[in-house]
Amino acid sequence: MKYLFEIVCVLLIIGIFVLTQVVGNQFYFFIGFVILQYMVLATAWNILGGYGGYVNFGSAGFLATGAYTSVALINFLDIGLVEQIIAGGAIAGLLGFVTGYLTLRLRGVYFAIATLALAIILETVVAHWDYVGGAAGTSILPKRKPELFDIMVVDRKTGIFANYKEFLFFLMGTVAIISVWIARYIENSKLGRGLNAIKDSEEAAECMGVPTLRLKLIATTISGAMMGVAGAPLASYLTFIDPLSAFNLEYAVNAIAMPMIGGTVSWMGPVIGALLLGTAQQVSSLWIQSELNLLIVGVLLVIFVIIAPEGIVGWFRKSRKGSRG
């Protein structure tokens, strides 16, 4: 069936909505949000890193750009969550475009260093910008009784969602599914094939008619925008935000580790990686010890680099090919 994937996507969004209505324990939405956020971040990273071969080490910077766009606009215009997500995505997408334009002549490790530097610069700027809380951070009180197209969205009695945790979970779930759809679309498109050629040999790609600079700029813009979308609801989720939490190194590390462990060649890789690693991290930090989660990432990365360098997806594909003969 031609639209099977799209139908599954819609069913999943409906399923997430149903979950918010029937599951009473808010705790699941609390940790589910984080895993879904990582799924968006990992999928976004993979568009540039997995398909195009450009390692972005500054994912936290793009995520935080989304988060702080929200904070600034909440302070300035008191806008709602959906508008925050759109604005966060737009600003981070613009940042992706500019970063791409300035740094894409750099290759390999130099590009990675440049993106890391970008995140550090942005963190310093935000830490000195008092309007959004500066280094001390600021608390964000979610809007009381938000409405969207005259429909009450969050209210204990009359709203679609009884509270903000449910609303945030639903929004991030929808965003995650749309992100995965976009990644899959790119993977099977001319853009995806061009990015693959760039990853394999940029000069050969250029000489074979691939407009390398243009494709890379499209990729950095889309990837940056998706990361911004993932970060936009962060302030509302945490109800408090400071540069340390928004620019956390964990975001940058996980954005790379999750696609690497899942497999970078397919849209499924980041999804699997985020589900596995995200769940393992949440479980270990909540029930065992909070410092354990980065250790898990490190150990898993080492294991995968040695045993399955192409990730879980690559490992499955190889073993299937092997059994066919």
Binding site: R193, G194, N196, A197, K199, D200, S201, E203, A204, A205, M208, G209, V210, V265
Partner: peptide, 15 residues
């Protein structure tokens, strides 16, 4: 400088 993650025919499909 082949596109080494692709098959032979996929290499030709790029141009």
């Amino acid at each position: 400088r082949p596109f080494h993650t692709m098959s032979v025919i996929e290499n030709l499909m790029i141009p």
